[in-house]
Computed example of a mutant assay.
Amino acid sequence: MLTPSFEARQDKESIILTIRVPYVKISEAEIDIDGTNFKFHCHPYYLWLEFSGELVEDGEEKAQYEVSTGNIIVTVSKKVKGEEFKNLDMLTTLLGGKKEVDLRSVAAKPLIEVISNNESSVYTNPPAAFSF
């Protein structure tokens, strides 16, 4: 899956996303809105954004595909009208699906796992070097 380039802006009532997805079959596009999460999928593109405020499906959402530019413009309503969503200009902070990793749990796991401890298969003397 490819993450498309995108731009996010807002007005008092909605979030407006411009997503660049050239040469797609737009009839197969899927959009999912769930609280602070916005997901867009249209093969081979996948975009998951997490906003600081909640979005809502209220019948006012719309999407328009501009064939000449390859952009889809999606407008989604804010749950709380007038709320100012933060960091819309920091695109990497919007990207969702990030999991926090606890480094202590990673360090506690062994990096090498012994599958078999068959002494006869272990070399005690390395083979002699080849000479030409």
Rank of each mutant, 00 (worst) to 15 (best):
E57K: 13
A29Y: 11
Q64R: 14
G53Q: 13
V21K: 08
K81Q: 09
L95S: 09
I16D: 13
K25P: 10
L91N: 14
E61N: 11
S5F: 01
A29C: 14
T69W: 04
A129C: 11
Y46I: 09
K86R: 15
A8K: 07
E60Q: 11
R9V: 12
N87A: 06
F38Q: 05
D11P: 06
D34N: 15
K86I: 12
K78D: 12
L94W: 06
Y23A: 05
I115L: 15
D32R: 14
K39R: 13
N117W: 03
E30Y: 01
I73R: 12
L88W: 03
L47D: 02
F85T: 07
L95G: 07
A128F: 01
S116C: 05
N118D: 15
K98L: 11
V101T: 14
E30F: 02
P127C: 02
F85I: 10
G70A: 10
S14K: 11
S5E: 12
L2C: 04
F85S: 07
L94F: 07
K98C: 05
T69A: 05
P110Q: 06
G97C: 01
W48Y: 03
G97P: 01
C42W: 04
S27W: 00
I31S: 06
Y46A: 12
R9M: 06
G59E: 12
A29G: 10
V56N: 03
V21H: 07
S116A: 14
S116W: 02
N117M: 06
Y23G: 01
Y23W: 00
D58R: 07
T3V: 13
G35I: 10
A107M: 10
Y45R: 08
I33R: 08
I112V: 14
A8F: 05
I31R: 13
A107G: 00
L111M: 15
D32K: 15
A107F: 05
E60A: 08
F6M: 08
K109P: 00
N118H: 11
N87R: 10
Y123V: 13
R20F: 15
Y45L: 05
P127T: 01
P110I: 04
